[in-house]
């Protein structure tokens, strides 16, 4: 089964609306779920997700989501945190302990190998030691040697962003993209995200060996409108494409 990974920024558009959406997610249709802990500087996200972080920062409180995290955990949905290292760096270990306590399985840190490359080995080794998954985040700008090196340090799935930031529209070439990543790290579980444009693109990514897709900006727009039905239909549709 191919992975469908919806993304939510905690606290966006407000705690009540988000909780309502989360409670109604058909858990059989998704595999993992990704939560953005609101960042002060979500620098590698596009305008939609950036805006959600800003609002999320104002609304998010640590206690509102405890029950829903438990619910996903009980239903075997693996939870991952998307966090910027610039935010968590001062209290990194405490933050990882906190995520483990919440039953999260791992973390995606989009700025780690870009802005803190010198610290990345130590961080990944630490996460390996405490048995918390580090999900490498790569993009077209990640050099070949770095993709190989970072991937070899972990057994987890890989997050490959097709665009320089989320939800934007720069032309990309799927066949070249998948060919490159498959040849650099053959046999690895690769989830694509960051600005996937169409359902046909999803089909092609899966046909070329992709193991799943992460969807974010589109969902944030439905959250903003409170369009729960649209959201459920969307999840259904993408699940359908992945199951073809």
């Amino acid at each position: 089964m191919k992975n469908l990974i919806p993304y939510f920024t905690l606290g966006y558009p407000d705690n009540e609306t988000l909780l309502k959406f989360l409670k109604n997610i058909p858990v059989k249709k998704i595999n993992y779920i990704e939560f953005g802990f609101p960042s002060n500087d979500p620098r590698y996200d596009g305008p939609t997700i950036r805006a959600s972080h800003k609002i999320g920062n104002e609304n998010f409180d640590g206690t509102s989501y405890r029950k829903i995290f438990d619910y996903f955990h009980e239903n075997n949905i693996k939870m991952y945190s998307l966090s910027y290292y610039s935010d968590i760096r001062p209290k990194f270990k405490e933050f990882i302990d906190y995520l483990k306590m919440l039953n999260f399985s791992g973390i995606i840190i989009p700025d780690l190998i870009i802005d803190y490359f010198a610290e990345s080995t130590e961080i990944i080794e630490y996460l390996n030691n405490v048995k918390f998954e580090y999900i490498p985040f790569f993009s077209p700008a990640t050099p070949d040697a770095i993709i190989k090196k970072i991937s070899s340090m972990t057994d987890s799935w890989i997050y490959y962003g097709l665009q320089p930031s989320t939800g934007i529209d720069i032309p990309y070439e799927i066949d070249y993209t998948t060919e490159r990543i498959n040849s650099l790290i053959p046999g690895r579980e690769i989830t694509y995200g960051f600005g996937i444009k169409t359902e046909n693109d999803i089909r092609q990514l899966m046909k070329n060996g992709g193991s799943g897709v992460a969807i974010g900006s589109y969902i944030e727009k439905m959250l903003e409108k409170g369009d729960e039905n649209g959201f459920l239909e969307y999840i259904d549709r993408i699940r359908g494409v992945l199951d073809e």
């Binding site: 590698y44 870009i114 077209p140 700008a141 050099p143």
Partner: peptide, 10 residues
């Protein structure tokens, strides 16, 4: 780009 020693900040 693919030959840089570190990822190019986007």
């Amino acid at each position: 780009i693919p030959d840089l020693p570190e990822p190019l900040p986007p």
